[in-house]
Design a protein around this nucleic acid. Structure first.
Lengths: 154, 154
DNA sequence: TCCAAATAGCACCAAATCGGTGCGGTATCG
DNA sequence: CGATACCGCACCGATTTGGTGCTATTTGGA
């Protein structure tokens, strides 16, 4: 499916929320509870997602009573591609997209597969798009650049 | 998953093959058997996929002994977006991508969802990419070596 | 000091989707 | 007639997804 999973959506929401709270690099920590209090996301899921993001060094975690999560980089240094790769596995671009072989041929021989090469081109453009979209660009314009109504979550 | 299904890949292969054979608009018909003789695709699957493509008016079918499938339009008038939409359902762009609601809020109220609007933007770009990629551009350079898909959208 | 809050880790589950198949029916050409 | 080829339905197993239970561990604060 050409669709983001719920995990990724939850991750995006969590990251946007953390970014809005200004929790960057141990400056402050946002708890999973705060996130799922605000949005109807199961607490367990948000924890699982954040854990995955932490493993990919996108967020840092702090245990204990006042613990939580914080971005490990500034929002403009985090890309959608990194988030998706962290939550949905390595980009399928690397693995042979269409392991189609001619009868008797091998997929290794590129000229035999009619669509592998062009589809790879498309996939690369797609990931390029994701890589050029930063977390910051997903934030609801904090400094009033655009006239979008701020959610005013806090 | 941000990945095309096997069905879509099979569909692309079938369409590319049909296009290469010059079967356009009842000019000639390519049988499913010919396709799966050439590529290791289960005959049943290719038939199912072609049927779906036919329902979406991307190919036409002819029953009988010398029957088969033909493109209903020229390859440059068929886009990747149309193919994907036919084989993986309506573009998820229309349905609310992240049905996230604030506690007590509704997803209908757009300003409340922090990521819906930005994610929609990204999705639109993505589909724009697919819509600008024609079946012709997926062909292995028939004559004019214009293997472009869409020019720099970022 | 002790408890509450919070993350970490593991196993587990139900439902949906995906890839693929069986079987019979119908149309068409030779 | 009969071979070829599309059509339609139901069905199956495997994988993925979305989600939960429970417990351990860490940490701050009353």
């Amino acid at each position: 499916m050409l669709q983001l999973t719920k995990r990724t959506e939850y991750g995006l929401i969590a990251l946007v929320h953390i970014a809005e709270r200004g929790a960057v690099d141990s400056g402050a920590f946002v708890s999973a509870r705060e996130i799922c209090d605000r949005y109807p996301i199961p607490r367990r899921l948000v924890a699982e997602v954040l854990k995955a993001l932490q493993k990919h060094s996108l967020v840092e975690s702090q245990r204990g009573a006042t613990g939580g999560y914080a971005l490990s980089r500034r929002p403009e240094a985090i890309t959608l591609g990194q988030i998706v790769a962290a939550l949905e596995g390595a980009p399928p671009l690397t693995s042979c997209e269409s392991p189609i072989v001619l009868k008797g041929g091998g997929c290794e021989v590129q000229p035999l597969c009619p669509i592998r090469s062009p589809v790879h081109r498309v996939r690369e453009q797609l990931w390029g798009l994701l890589e050029h979209t930063t977390l910051e660009s997903l934030l609801p314009q904090p400094s009033g650049a655009r006239a979008r109504t701020s959610p005013t979550l806090s």
